[in-house]
């Protein structure tokens, strides 16, 4: 049974490694950032599967933290790296 969960988590790992292509050649920065967020989400899935496969319930806490902080980088990206809204407001004033 543990092998099953390990196999699925290996599958998810391959999945995000294929998605790496989008980071390497995404045409715009938001595309790259989205793929990073996708990494986080898939990471949560892998961690949950590993916690079952390895018999380490602590890993659920790691997954919880990933879910909590996963979108933080995206939010920072939108507000700090790509602040369109602020630029507009400044130009109006």
């Amino acid at each position: 049974m543990n092998d099953f969960y390990l196999a699925v988590s290996a599958f998810l790992l391959v999945n995000i490694l294929v998605g790496l292509v989008r980071i390497l050649r995404g045409p715009t920065p938001p595309d790259r950032m989205l793929m990073a967020q996708m990494f986080g989400t898939t990471g949560v899935g892998i961690l949950l599967l590993l916690s079952e496969a390895m018999g380490l319930p602590v890993l659920r806490d790691v997954a919880l933290l990933f879910a909590l902080l996963g979108a933080l980088a995206t939010v920072s990206f939108v507000r700090r790296y790509w602040p369109v809204e602020f630029a507009e407001e400044e130009s109006k004033e």
């Binding site: 790496l20 980071i23 390497l24 790259r32 950032m33 793929m35 990073a36 990494f39 790296y81």
Partner: peptide, 9 residues
């Protein structure tokens, strides 16, 4: 920027 995203991954 690309390097930062890669670093997060």
């Amino acid at each position: 920027f690309k390097a930062v995203v890669l670093f997060i991954a």
